[in-house]
Amino acid sequence: MCLSRIQSLRLVAVLEDCSHQLEILGHILAMRIRRERPAQEKAKLRKLTRDCEYISQLMSKLHLELEEKQCFSSLLQAVEEVEQRRRDTNMKREEMKQVDKRRQTLLKQQEELQQKTLKLQVIHHEANKKDHLLKMRSKENIKENDTGLQLRKIQSETSQAEALLEGQLELLKKQLKEEVRVHEESQKFLLKQHEELQQLLHELQKHTEQMVQEKSKQLHNMCFKKDLNLDRLEDMKMKFKEMEQMVMEDREEQEKLYQQQARIRAATKLQAWWRGCIVRRGLCGFKKAEKGKKGNKKERRKKKK
């Protein structure tokens, strides 16, 4: 359905006013939800906020449609969708009711079946008791008729069992005799082994005593040798210390001699260096003295001649 331009503009203005009011209402609901309230009241407020959001979306679509096409088909479509949802919800409710009714009927049927099964079990139990009684009576009658035959069978079986037992008794006697013979032979054999082992033990004891005596002698000799070696070791240690002391003294004397020789060498080198310095610098006094010394030596030689 199409509208004129003026009608559409009027509706747009109304829708804008309604959208503003819905926004204000949404803010108010949000503030109330944030506050501490009971759970049921919060659920109702949240449902109202969802409804407001849905209506605002529809109004925005309708606003655009009125501005562009000058019609409100989206509103009609939304109304149809809402009605369809209501129908669906009603259908679901009816289906749920039917399901509940079926469930109740099934429960009733189950209860009836349970009662019937209990009755059948009671009847079956009674029938089993009757059958058992009949069987017991029939067995008693059969036993009364067959007692004579059973006695004869028992007598024959007992005679056969006695014969078997006598045969088994004879076999056991033979086995007992054989076991006694084997026991005597094994006892004799064990006695012989015991005597042989006693002799061997006596010989081993003698041998061990001899070995112990020999080892004790060897140990005594080893201890004596050990003492001698220790004495020798002490003597060697003393001699080694004396030799070491002598070596140390020799080293000290050699070091002293080496130091004296080094000092003499250093003094001679120093004197030679000093004489060289004097000669190079031309100090005559030293030369004249040397010449005088040489002349004196020659005169002395002449006098000796």
Results as ranks from 00 to 15, higher is better:
residue 52 C to T: 10
residue 76 L to V: 12
residue 126 E to C: 15
residue 108 K to T: 11
residue 247 V to N: 12
residue 234 E to R: 08
residue 203 E to C: 02
residue 3 L to D: 02
residue 14 V to C: 06
residue 177 K to T: 15
residue 107 L to Q: 07
residue 217 K to R: 11
residue 53 E to C: 01
residue 54 Y to K: 11
residue 93 R to E: 07
residue 102 R to S: 04
residue 149 L to F: 04
residue 305 K to V: 13
residue 266 A to T: 11
residue 226 K to P: 01
residue 109 Q to R: 11
residue 124 H to Q: 09
residue 56 S to D: 09
residue 182 V to N: 13
residue 26 G to D: 13
residue 163 A to I: 08
residue 252 E to K: 14
residue 104 Q to C: 05
residue 290 E to W: 01
residue 214 E to M: 14
residue 279 V to T: 12
residue 52 C to D: 09
residue 205 Q to T: 12
residue 50 R to I: 00
residue 241 K to V: 11
residue 88 D to F: 00
residue 106 L to P: 00
residue 179 E to F: 15
residue 70 Q to R: 04
residue 132 H to S: 14
residue 291 K to P: 07
residue 184 E to R: 07
residue 27 H to T: 11
residue 213 Q to L: 13
residue 43 A to G: 02
residue 301 R to N: 07
residue 26 G to T: 06
residue 148 G to P: 01
residue 84 Q to L: 08
residue 52 C to H: 01
residue 132 H to C: 02
residue 7 Q to N: 04
residue 14 V to S: 07
residue 174 K to H: 05
residue 238 M to R: 13
residue 233 L to G: 03
residue 179 E to I: 12
residue 180 V to A: 15
residue 34 R to I: 13
residue 40 Q to G: 03
residue 296 N to G: 01
residue 276 G to K: 11
residue 238 M to V: 15
residue 64 L to F: 03
residue 70 Q to D: 03
residue 136 M to A: 15
residue 7 Q to Y: 02
residue 239 K to N: 14
residue 35 R to F: 02
residue 48 L to H: 08
residue 101 K to E: 03
residue 304 K to S: 07
residue 127 A to H: 10
residue 117 T to R: 02
